[in-house]
């Protein structure tokens, strides 16, 4: 097998030409994005190199405690970001997000790494960290999408919900249509991704594996697992998150907490 071509440091800096091109467009068309582009580029370099060096150490230490700790930090960040995407603040949303991401991601990650790939030792950071990252990242997006959609639906359809409550519907029954539409909104991107995968572009992970010399067939098998696990993690996390969010908007006496909506 041919050895992997490393990108030399000078050549890496040469890649900045690509961004300079974008900055030129932004400048010419007066988009005002030059500053953002500079910051975003700098952060891309910084964040990825920090992660890269961290992973080198994590792989070298090879201890389950550190792997778990890393996953917990990733989880906290994911909950933070998911809640930040909600348009309206919701008391306790951070804990709700964390709980649903923990359950949704942990089940998926454990199943994929232990049952399907059968990672040895069970905590091998080379598998757990990147796979955990993909699961968490997608679960986070799914939960945020579901929460945001539910809030929007509730704001637009508050009279409909109150009409049902006034007829004696329970809070869960009265919000069921909104809940369904939010859960669908969260799941549809993952389903669309499965429909389109491989037709135009190869997914990032598969591309990476092929570039680093893995046989395309192995890469494909991994990618199939990845697609399925993402769909599952999104659905589980969004489902749990939404269930807890809906409860937040209702009291035990089936009252709508309008002060959280309007």
């Amino acid at each position: 097998m041919k050895p992997i071509i490393d990108v030399g440091f000078v050549h890496l800096l040469l890649a900045l030409v690509l961004v300079l091109l974008v900055i030129a467009i932004s400048h010419r068309e007066r988009l005002g994005l030059e500053r953002d582009l500079v910051i975003a580029t700098a952060r891309t370099f910084l964040q990825l190199f920090v992660v890269g060096y961290f992973l080198i150490y994590l792989f070298a230490w090879d201890r389950w405690e550190f792997v778990l700790l890393t996953l917990i930090v990733m989880l906290s960040a994911a909950s933070w970001i998911a809640v930040g995407r909600l348009k309206q603040p919701l008391p306790g949303a951070r804990w709700i997000a964390m709980a649903s991401l923990v359950v949704g991601s942990a089940i998926t990650l454990a199943f994929v790494t232990q049952v399907i790939i059968q990672v040895e030792p069970w905590y091998d950071p080379r598998y757990l960290i990147p796979i955990g990252g993909m699961i968490l990242g997608n679960a986070m997006t799914g939960a945020a999408l579901a929460g945001e959609r539910f809030q929007g639906e509730l704001r637009n359809r508050v009279e409909e919900v109150e009409t049902l409550l006034a007829l004696g519907f329970s809070g869960m029954e009265a919000t069921r249509d909104l809940y369904r539409s939010a859960l669908r909104a969260a799941m549809i991107p993952a389903i669309n991704a499965m429909l389109a995968v491989g037709i135009v572009q190869l997914p990032g992970m598969m591309t990476g594996q092929i570039l680093s010399g893995t046989s395309p067939l192995i890469a494909v098998k991994y990618q199939v697992v990845v697609m399925l696990m993402i769909t599952c993690a999104v659905a589980l996390s969004a489902f749990l998150f939404l269930h807890l969010v809906v409860k937040r908007y209702l009291t035990p006496a089936h009252q709508l907490r309008r002060q959280l909506i309007l």
Binding site: E159, T163, G168, A253
Partner: peptide, 21 residues
């Protein structure tokens, strides 16, 4: 009012909202 099941109560004391949905 708290002595009643809220769902039963809302059938016995029925509110018709301003805008009919």
């Amino acid at each position: 009012l708290q002595a009643y099941d809220p769902l039963e109560l809302r059938r016995r004391i029925a509110l018709v909202l301003q805008n009919p949905v």
